[in-house]
Each structure stands twice: as C-alpha cells, then as structure tokens.
Design a protein around this nucleic acid. Structure first.
Lengths: 244, 244
DNA sequence: GGATGTATGTACGTTTCCGCACGTACGAAT
DNA sequence: ATTCGTACGTGCGGAAACGTACATACATCC
C-alpha cells in the first residue's frame, strides 16, 4: 500500500460522497488516500483493526477461513461500501480476512477518528449503520445462495456483483481464485464459466474474464443478486447514486 | 401474543440485564412484557417494524424466504439476543421473517423508544451494536457451514445453538420444521437425527427431541458452533453471563 | 527456442443430497 | 375401537459437486 496525494479522492467513494458538506469537511483531514495492490491483505482474522477503508477504485473481498484452510467469501466492498465495520460496531477485531480482490485506490480513516465521528451521530453514523445492514443482507443472501443454488448461478451472481464495482468490463481473476471466493472447486468454476462462455455471456482466457452480455448474465442469475442490489438501494438510495 | 404483568421480566434477557441501573431505569417504562406462542410471526419480510423484541424464555428464528417458497434460517435469538435490528440500524424494514420457534416470554420496546435510547449512546447503543456484530458472525458462519458441511454437522450445530437458549433438554420441534430451518429435506434431517440417536446423543419421538449427551454433540459438531459462541462471548462477555 | 510455471480442460469414481413415492406408527378425536 | 392426521422410516433414481489425477496450452524467463 502506498500513499497517494489526490485530495478529495474520498469523494469517489459513494458513502463518503453522501455526507453533507459540513460533515465531510469535519472528517476530511482524517482521510488518507492509499493505493491497494491485488492480493494485499488489509487485515487478517483476529487482527485489531486500525483503519476503516473506503474503496474508490479498489475492490475488497471479505473472506472467511475455515480451520481446514478452505475459504469462502461472505461479502465484498467496492466504491459503494467500506471495510472495517468492527471498528464502529464495537468489536475492534473481526473474524474475517479482508483481501484486495482488485487493485486500486481507497481512502482510509484511523479507528479513533471513525469512532469520534460515529459518536456524533448525524449522517455519518446513519450511513455507516445502513451500510452495515445492507452488508448483513449480502451475507444472508450468500448463506441462502450457498444452500440452494448451483455453482453456475453463484458464479453469475459473483460476476455481476463485481461488475457493479468495476470501471471496466475486464476482470483480472483466475478460476482458481474465484473458486476460493465461492468455496467450491476450481473445476466447478471452469465448467460453469465454460457454459457461460458457450452462451456468449462472458469470454475468458488465462486470468482475465470479460463481460460480454450483462443483460444475459442478469437473466441467468438467481434472485439473490437483485435482492442484494435492491436492499442496498432501499437502505442507501437516498444518499448515494443507485447501482446500474 | 398476550401481555403479561411481570415487572422486570426484561432483566431475564441478558442484553437488558447488561445495562447499568441508570440506563435500565430510563427505558424500563418502555418495556412491555408479552407472551409469544409457537409459530407466531413477529414480522414478515418487508414489514415495517414497530417493536424490538428482547426474548426472555422464547426463542425467535430469523428465516429467509426464497421466491420459490423455500426457507432457510439465517439467525436465531433467545434470551441472549434481540429481534428487530433494522429499527436502530436505520432500515426500518427487514428482509427476513421472524417467527417464534419456541413459545415463551419476551419484552418488547416501541421503535421510537428504541431510537431515542439508541441515539443517547451509552451502554444501550454499545450493546445493541455489539449484538448486531455477533449476529453478523452467526450469519456468516451459517453461510460457510451451508457451503462446506454435511447436514448432520449442521443439525448438531442447530441443536446446540438452540439448547443454549433453552431452560430444558426437551425441544418441541418436528424434523420437518428443522428441515425448513436448515434449508434441507425433511428426510435428510430424519436420517441425520437417526444417526445421532444411534450414537446416544439425542432421543426423539413425534415432535420432541431430547438432548441426552451434550458433550457428545459438541464433539460431533463442526467448528462453526464454537466460533459463534466464542465471538458472542468476546463481543458481549463483559456485559452478559457467558454461555454454558 | 526450450524450459518452467501457471491456467484451464477433461475424465472417473464417489459422496451427498435431492425429488418423489410410499410404508409405518403414534395419538387424538369421534 | 376405528378413523384420521401427522410424524417419521425407507427406498430408488438422478443430479450436482467433490477428490483426484492427468492432459493441454499459453506466457514468461533464461
């Protein structure tokens, strides 16, 4: 992670952009722009958190790691989210690993500053809590989707959720990594991705996946995707631009 | 639901009991004891919440309902929890169904009163937020467990989590209802329960399940159970009595 | 240009769970 | 006592995904 100098970089994060001028001005000096590189671990399960991260172009994945070493993604945060909920929820530490899934920029804010600003109430507190609730929906939906839907449907959901955070249609990601996120075998991802490619929805080659037909993906996905998007819009739509 | 007259009934809920005297005195008049009967729906997905419920002897299940009608439990709240997080998180409505899984008592608190007390900060806000975080762990673990573990392990987990909220070893619950909670077939539950019975861990007959060997169940369960218990204790252990 | 590492394709047997169907057995009500 | 509803047992075929193993193909580095 390296510091970047851009001022107001934070405004590219939808949650920060939602703050009234006065509130943003109050915390502005606490925001530190950083660049995050692919694969970087922001914090490990059990770590005491030092910062809350507001991604701007980066995408962060929240992974759960089993004792066996198996992993499963429970949530994802891009420019419409944040990472480090435990800081203002009171737990200080987390039981997840936060890993950079797509390199890019973010701004971060020291834990003490977050707690101070949170305690003032206002829109800042409101937005953080609403985002937390939307994350709970995302996690719940992951639980349900894991139980009831096929790998192919889940792959669609995962691709769409990621695409929503991306500025491009090209995703740098191997089948193996996706398998770790979804908690399935690499082969299962390859087969499912092959089907989607046969149908012309995506195209992929050696570590990059290109979205070709977003509408087609939306038609192939299970209900879980839309539920999460709608709930985010319901909770935060008055503050942030709606998802595509 | 019927009103019950007991004063201080609320103190039998661990979260309320955690409040300092002053804070409890402030909200005491807002607490309304109620009796909840098995199967009662406290709120449906999409409903605007009117109250937060603090169970004392009742157990509430948070169910997710798919478009297909399939259900899956994402969380459970007994005397160490509460139901109605969306009220203080800002969402007002929820995407779950809250249904009474084990009849008993609770106290409830009007939404406005909850919001007022929450806005004051203090231990009340802290406890509610920490509980929310522990619920997120519970939901995450459910997601992971759904993905990676067998029905039998999940049944063990479900039985232990419930047992922790119960005052007795006898659980009134059919295999069919458990199947709805776990999001699996009834037959799958019957077979798994049969195995546990063969091993002398439980005994069941026509709608009641008796825990015979709790230590044995703990030995048979996957890691997911203990993770949830430990995280609850870590987050709230300074406030409430530890789980057994 | 050859070697090496990584990404993806393919295949096979096995396990787990599903959907469906039907049988059995308990318990309460008439 | 019979009936009937509900709870649980069991069996069968099939789908999905798993574990494992190995083949192929691109990409980069000497």
């Amino acid at each position: 992670m390296t510091a970047t100098g851009k001022p107001d970089e934070g405004l590219r994060n939808h949650l920060l952009a939602a703050l009234p001028q006065g509130e943003f001005a109050r915390i502005k000096s606490d925001l530190e722009p950083v660049s995050l590189i692919l694969g970087e671990v922001l914090y490990e399960s059990g770590d005491t958190l030092t910062h809350v991260y507001f991604p701007t172009t980066a995408i962060i994945s929240l992974l759960y790691i089993m004792e066996s070493g198996a992993t499963a993604e429970i949530g994802i945060a891009g420019n419409n989210g944040l990472v480090g909920i435990a800081l203002f929820m009171g737990g200080e530490t987390t039981s997840n690993r936060a890993v950079v899934q797509s390199g890019g920029d973010a701004v971060r804010m020291k834990g003490d500053a977050v707690k101070t600003a949170f305690a003032l109430g206002g829109v800042f507190q409101n937005v953080l809590l609403r985002y937390t609730q939307s994350l709970m929906t995302q996690i719940s939906q992951t639980a349900v989707c894991n139980r009831l839907h096929s790998v192919e449907q889940q792959l669609c959901r995962w691709l769409l959720i990621n695409h929503d955070q991306m500025q491009t249609d090209k995703l740098v990601m191997t089948h193996d990594l996706i398998a770790n996120m979804l908690g399935v075998r690499r082969e299962g991802v390859s087969i499912a991705a092959g089907h989607l490619q046969d149908r012309g929805l995506i195209k992929y080659a050696r570590g990059t996946i290109t979205m070709l037909d977003r509408a087609g993906l939306e038609a192939a996905v299970c209900e879980c995707y839309q539920v999460v998007v709608d709930e985010y819009d319901r909770l935060l739509g008055e503050y942030v631009p709606r998802n595509r």
